[in-house]
Each structure stands twice: as C-alpha cells, then as structure tokens.
Lab assay of single mutants.
Amino acid sequence: MATGGRRGAAAAPLLVAVAALLLGAAGHLYPGEVCPGMDIRNNLTRLHELENCSVIEGHLQILLMFKTRPEDFRDLSFPKLIMITDYLLLFRVYGLESLKDLFPNLTVIRGSRLFFNYALVIFEMVHLKELGLYNLMNITRGSVRIEKNNELCYLATIDWSRILDSVEDNYIVLNKDDNEECGDICPGTAKGKTNCPATVINGQFVERCWTHSHCQKVCPTICKSHGCTAEGLCCHSECLGNCSQPDDPTKCVACRNFYLDGRCVETCPPPYYHFQDWRCVNFSFCQDLHHKCKNSRRQGCHQYVIHNNKCIPECPSGYTMNSSNLLCTPCLGPCPKVCHLLEGEKTIDSVTSAQELRGCTVINGSLIINIRGGNNLAAELEANLGLIEEISGYLKIRRSYALVSLSFFRKLRLIRGETLEIGNYSFYALDNQNLRQLWDWSKHNLTITQGKLFFHYNPKLCLSEIHKMEEVSGTKGRQERNDIALKTNGDQASCENELLKFSYIRTSFDKI
C-alpha cells in the first residue's frame, strides 16, 4: 500500500482533458527560462521544448504516446526543470519506465491550478516501474492521483506527508504495488545497510526511497516546507523545498512566496507586481503582455491589467481597466465587458449561442446573426445582446428569417469595421425574408467608422429604411451602385405612401 494514499474509496472516473512563447529569463536562482504550460502528445517531438525550461508557468501534460519505446527515452533528460506552477499529468506514455532521468531536479509542483483537485496525476502508464522524482520536495496545493499503472512499484516507500501538507485526498490505487509483488529495495538494503531515512506512518517504520538508488530526502521537522541542505541544516524561511546553503534567500532552489532578481522575498516591493503567484514583474512586463494579447485571437491570451499590486489576466467583477495605466478602477454604474472572439468572429444561430455573449459591452471581433427560429426570440436576444455598444469588426445579418427588427441591439452605437466582410463591408444584410426595420432612427444613433453597407434580398425592408441608415451611420456616399439592390429590397412591402385627393359631386333626387 502506498504510504499516505487512500484505498478502496469510491472515486469519480478520471477524465483526461485534452506555445513556446518565453516569458522571460528567471535569473540567477533558476538555471534556465520560464516556459508556458505545455500539452505534449502523440510523439516526442515537442518534448524537446523543455530543454531550457527551469519553470513551467502553467501545467505540463505528457500523454497518448503509443509508439514510443524505452530506448526512445534513454537520452532524454531535462535537468534544468525545477518547478511547475500548476500540475504534472502523465497518461498512456508507452515505453517510459521512470522519471528519474527525465526530470531529475523537479523540486516543486505548486498546484496553482489543479487537474480535478490533483497536482500530480500518473494514470495508465503501462510501462512505468517507478516514479523516480527523487528531488520532489513540495506539492504546495492539491493532491496526488496514481492509478492503474500495472508495473509501478516504489510507492509504499514514499512518505507523501513530507511532500504535501495533507495526504487525506491522495488516491493511489490499482498499481502493481497493490499486489505486494514489488519487493522494493532501498539503497544499501541488499548489503544489509540502512542508507535512507525511515519514518513512521500508520504504525509502520519504513525506509523512504524513490528507487533502488535514490533515497527520499527527509528534512528535520523544524525546517517545515522550506527544505534543508545535504547536511540537514534548514533553508531560509522564504525558500521552498530545498537550498544549497542554509538561511540564505539567494540560495533557495525555489521560493515559498515570490522570486525577485535572484532572491526569494515575502512580497513584491514597489515598483514590482505579483505575477502568477510566484514571481515579481515590473510595469513594462505587464504592459507588454497586455499589448501582445490586445489584437491576438490565441486562446488563453489575456490583456493583463494591474489590481491590488498584482498583474492579473482581467479586472475583477465591479472594476474596469483604465487604459492609460492598466489599473483596475471601480465602475460607475454597470461595468464594461470586452469579449474577445477566439477566431475573430462568432455566429449567433440560437439563443444558446447568444447567451455566451451575455453582459458583453464591447465585441472584439465580428458578429454573424443567422437565426431561423426560436421561442420568445426578441426578448431572449435583447437579454443577451442588448448591452453590446461596440463591435470592432463587422455585423452580418444573414438568412435570419425569424427577425423582424434589429432593435434587440438596443445599445449598439459603434461598428468600427477594423475587419470587413469580403474585404469591403462593415454591415452586411443578406436574404432576411421578414426583416422590416433596422432601428427606430428617431431614437437610435449608430456610427460606422469604416467599410460599406450591403443589402440584398431583404424583400420587406424598404429602401427608405436603408437610406436612413446611410445618413445616420455616416456611410452615405461610400456605397457603390450594386451594394444596395434596388429590386430585391422592399419588393414585397408597401414602401411608397402617396396622399390621394378626392373630389365629389353631391346629387339628390331633384338636383344634379
């Protein structure tokens, strides 16, 4: 039985969820670079991206490699990797027998973001014989899940209580170790020597080791999670996991709180800001991140802002960003909400898709409305799209047979046209069989910064309504002859009103 693990408890099935942008060198404390989270699957090609990484700022997932063999891993080693800020997950990587050479110096898994409450997941690794993470000293947050690894031993010899604050939620089941077939031998045991430290858990006094050649490092209890030197002297209180010299914040392997210019500090002093819960960055760093993602459509890219001495992905609820200094300031009234469309555009074809934009005031991208039916549609669209004030790209209304009016965009005031449909149009209306009105132009103002209007096959939309939009939106004169079809717009509506004058002759039985 794995020490510190839980057996036999019912657990939810383990679901495996399925960018080499360097964020800056980590400095003297770390020998390499800070790398983003990685999802490495199918083959070993991307694994080489770990070569210079000291910190993975995010998670590391290595999974679904069915053609790899043990010899493929023999020359692979990433000794610079010290810390993973989120979680480490391995799933069905064939041929991998140990992690001792792959990650010989991995010391800390912070667990800032977890995989279903777990910071370390080893699942269905069919050839893994031992973990071998002999320098792993601290899992700051989260638990361990090690399950269905039929060859995995050296679990009962690990004292997880020396690595985690609590072992109650560890789930370590259905491994070879369960069948008591392992016969784990710690260093020196074969020669009758006791080389590794022994600890007591559940009444068992057991030597602690990761492999037959690597003991588990056990520091004096007084050192807590700070770690200790090879001689057993406690590291500085700002260290986490390990250090090369005692009581020196510049000799830590990793930091308990924050890293700044080669030393570990309790908090980031001005003019620095907390970033990702582990390091200090200056304003320029946060500003660069903001600008890199301002026009990016890459998933996970955030326009970072500053709030409460932190550089964070977005302002919290009730705050909006001051564009001059990136500071989050309290909103006066309802907060603006910028919604970034991942692929640059979004099609609204149902109430469900409209709900995804609920509360958005600025759309960074283009909207395509293609709704053919739905219950209580006008009210639903207004509830979900009615706060949109600005669209950076274009607005396209296409084959939306259920629409009679666009009044559900009740606050839309600006279409920038930074991206144009077919390279020309910022407003595009095609084949809307029941569209009769755009907006009530006596109450609604709309500016279209650039781009043209396109109207074709809107049989109940009168040309007068379209011409009014040209005047109000500032697009009059931009359109070419064929942009607004004269014969297919309003051709099934009563669009022309003329005053009919009647004269009559009164007659009676005795007068003409």
Rank of each mutant, 00 (worst) to 15 (best):
C255W: 01
P316V: 06
P330F: 12
H59E: 06
L327M: 08
N117W: 06
R256E: 05
R69I: 13
S166M: 15
Y134T: 02
N322Q: 14
S244L: 04
P334D: 04
G241E: 03
V34S: 03
D178I: 05
T267E: 05
Y273S: 06
C223G: 02
Q303C: 15
F91P: 00
E207A: 03
V121F: 02
W160T: 01
Y154M: 11
F66N: 01
T229W: 05
L164K: 12
H307K: 09
Y87Q: 00
E207R: 09
C219R: 04
S237D: 14
K193L: 04
F115L: 11
S112T: 11
P330V: 14
F258K: 02
T68F: 07
N170R: 08
Y30P: 09
C153N: 02
I222N: 09
I56K: 00
Q299L: 05
L106D: 00
S166G: 07
G227Y: 10
I201Q: 11
C215A: 08
L63N: 01
K80M: 09
W210Y: 13
F123G: 13
S213I: 06
L120W: 02
T140S: 10
D165E: 14
P31Q: 02
F103H: 00
D184C: 15
Q276D: 15
D178T: 09
N43S: 07
D248L: 05
K251R: 09
C255H: 00
C293Y: 02
T250F: 10
E238G: 05
Y118W: 07
G58L: 00
T229V: 07
N242Q: 14
L136W: 00
D165A: 06
T140K: 14
G333F: 06
N43A: 07
I172G: 11
Q287W: 14
D169Y: 06
G300K: 13
C264R: 00
T189G: 13
G227K: 06
P249L: 07
N195V: 12
N202V: 05
N138A: 06
L50Y: 05
N105W: 02
H302D: 11
Y319H: 11
F283N: 11
L90K: 00
F275S: 03
P336A: 04
E33F: 01
L120F: 00
I172F: 04
L128V: 03
H307V: 08
I158R: 08
C182T: 10
C239D: 00
S143A: 09
P104A: 02
T229L: 12
A119Q: 01
C182S: 08
V305A: 12
Y273F: 13
S317W: 13
C186R: 02
F103R: 01
N149F: 02
N105Q: 10
L63C: 05
C264M: 00
E97D: 04
N42M: 12
L44P: 08
T140F: 07
E314N: 15
K80V: 04
E238N: 09
G241A: 12
G95A: 11
M38Q: 14
C53S: 00
H307A: 03
C280E: 00
I172S: 13
G192C: 14
G142S: 02
K129F: 05
Q204W: 04
L174A: 13
E97K: 11
R74P: 01
L89V: 00
K191D: 02
P104R: 01
S296M: 10
E130H: 12
G142P: 00
C186W: 01
Y272R: 02
A190R: 12
G183T: 07
N202C: 06
C182W: 04
L326F: 14
R141S: 06
D165G: 12
S317F: 13
T85M: 04
P36Q: 04
E33Y: 00
Q245W: 09
V265T: 09
E238L: 04
